[in-house]
Design a protein around this nucleic acid. Structure first.
Lengths: 342, 342
DNA sequence: AGCGGTTATCGAAGCGCTTCGATCAATGCT
DNA sequence: AGCATTGATCGAAGCGCTTCGATAACCGCT
């Protein structure tokens, strides 16, 4: 193993000089700098991460707490994770994977052992047990999602309230009078997951504002559940003409079910989804949707976090604006003269 | 921050004694041990990871190289990842996330900087560029998947050859004469991904052995592609009665497509999948399948790796036996008197 | 010529831990 | 009783790096 001392000897300088060349924390003459760089290359020197971390109290590692819980949609999580890792690398950091089942304990552990410099936490609940801990822990953090009380924390997320409102507005603009929010599995609501609650909130606000009739129902992620839920929905609301879906895995099954129940999309039923763009475009018909810009959020999260580590004061909350893209699944409300039996 | 010296002082012993109590590498009298443990608890001591790593040349971190490439099915990856993290934690290790796009470079980097003790590599190609590197690098590793030349490497994977053979046998036993393998997206074959090739190999071997007629086709993961591929398949092979699918995301669409083409499952067409059990059971009809025990494989991978770190000689290759579960999607071959036009 | 102020470099201390002798007491053996 | 052996503990060295003065050389001033 080649150490900084080897490089120093090879370049004919002190180890501290090599260190300063590499960190740029003191000015070094161009000649020495070049000589050192040459030696680094010649010897293939790589700083030892532990030694560096020990001496500088900076590990250059971020922790990513990834949820593995019921009802969470995996591909989206992976998009977040990928964006986080990729961006972290761009800032010369690595990413340690923590599973949410280690919960608060895990956060405490990695901080107390100085394993990581900062932490990205996903899947935030309104009353998240990790929130008070993060406040107490003096470990720089960013939450992807908003707890109810975000005081003193840095959070970022899609503006789900607005996302739902956009959907309601879009449907109302098209003349729909009776619409429904087909939501996440009920476990997600019971856990008080922020994004699901905020979407519901936005849906209610939009429905009120536009004076349309709105109903909400959770939906489990199986084909049968979708069938049952939709049947129930149509039984309760025979004149339903618009659907807002926030539940990626059921999107395919939902379209099947509507087809099998004889409801054409968008002629009989307009469908809007809150989901990743590629999912929306992969459906027949292509779905009008508010996209979840996971990559952008993940990237921005890391950038905020790195900024924090560099002493910058980040904004307390960042809401990524929701954007609705109209595609083929939404259209004008049909005339209300059909007799429907589910 | 409380250090080992604080603990030592509090317990009235030398720091080395504290260290030995914690590591168990030398015998310590029961009284001292208890006293030290009491002090550790009283002060809330946690060893500093960097210091420990520096002094012992062991970081207690494993790297996990996760693929983010075209055609890979994300939920399965996540199951592997979760199992790896969970198991690693059980052996007091953490997991650093590396994305495959850093490729060989990333492996070199984490090793040369002593960031990790060992590495788990997923998504292995037959001629994987990382394989020669791993052989050279003197970084303990385990591959989830087999390259063509696994000499000197430790690998583990489901026995995909056998998996495909089981499927062929099952169909042949039911009297099917003309069957097809509906495979992964072609990018996965082109990349020479091990599991896809081995499945194909097993399919061919099975077909030969049982003297049935078999065709193979890759399939992209979109609804349209499934439709086109299946139509083409039925045009080429009108008397096809059995399908083996190795492509999780298209399973839903495939069943749709068959339905829309008027092929009942299993009356007209038997469908076998190589996929996670929960996916197979989430379909209508429930799919007969060979399951991919991601959790088991991930766990075993880490255990082999930890064993290696402890100096145990691991088996060169571990093939997890394939198991076929017959459910509702496979049945006896229909009589061959129908006239089909696709 | 002499002075303060840069600029470039060095040397040494120290980050918190592990680990290698060394020490000392207690033990068992002849 | 005397010696080697074992068990429990200590002290110090050192892992590879960063960082903090200190130093020396040089600049432009007066």
């Amino acid at each position: 193993m080649v150490t900084i001392a080897d490089v120093a000897k090879h370049a004919g300088v002190a180890t501290s000089t090599v260190s300063y060349v590499l960190s740029g924390k003191r000015s070094i003459s161009p000649e020495t700098r070049q000589r050192v760089h040459a030696s680094v290359d010649a010897l293939g020197y790589r700083p030892n991460a532990s030694a560096r971390a020990l001496a500088s109290s900076r590990s250059n590692v971020l922790a990513l707490v990834i949820p593995l819980r019921a009802g969470m949609h995996v591909p989206v999580m992976m998009q977040f994770a990928t964006a986080v890792v990729t961006t972290a690398r761009r800032y010369d950091h690595d990413v340690l994977l923590l599973t949410a089942d280690e919960g608060a304990t895990g956060l405490e552990r990695v901080q107390q052992s100085s394993l990581v410099d900062a932490v990205v936490v996903m899947d935030i609940e309104l009353y998240d047990e990790r929130v008070p801990l993060l406040r107490a822990l003096d470990l720089p953090s960013i939450l992807i999602g908003f707890p109810l009380d975000a005081e003193g924390l840095t959070c970022i997320d899609l503006d789900f309230v607005r996302a739902a409102e956009l959907c309601v507005d879009h449907l109302a603009d098209l003349g729909h009078q009776r619409i429904a929010l087909l939501g996440t599995p009920s476990a997600v609501y019971e856990r008080q997951t922020g994004f699901a609650h905020r979407t519901r909130e936005g849906f209610r606000a939009g429905v009120d504002r536009r004076s349309v009739h709105g109903v909400e129902t959770p939906c489990e992620s199986s084909h049968e559940a979708v069938l049952k839920t939709v049947e129930q929905l149509l039984r309760d609301e025979p004149e339903l003409t618009g659907l807002v879906v926030q539940n990626e895995p059921i999107i395919g099954p939902l379209l099947d079910v509507l087809r099998s129940l004889g409801r054409r999309v968008p002629e009989d039923m307009s469908v809007l989804a809150i989901c990743a763009d590629d999912v929306a475009e992969g459906q027949r018909p292509r779905l009008s949707s508010v996209s979840i810009p996971a990559e952008q959020i993940g990237q921005q999260a890391v950038e905020l976090l790195i900024g924090k580590l560099d002493g910058l004061a980040p904004p307390a909350g960042t809401l990524v604006p929701a954007v609705l893209t109209a595609r083929a699944s939404s259209g004008p409300a049909p005339q209300l003269d059909r007799s429907t039996t589910a």
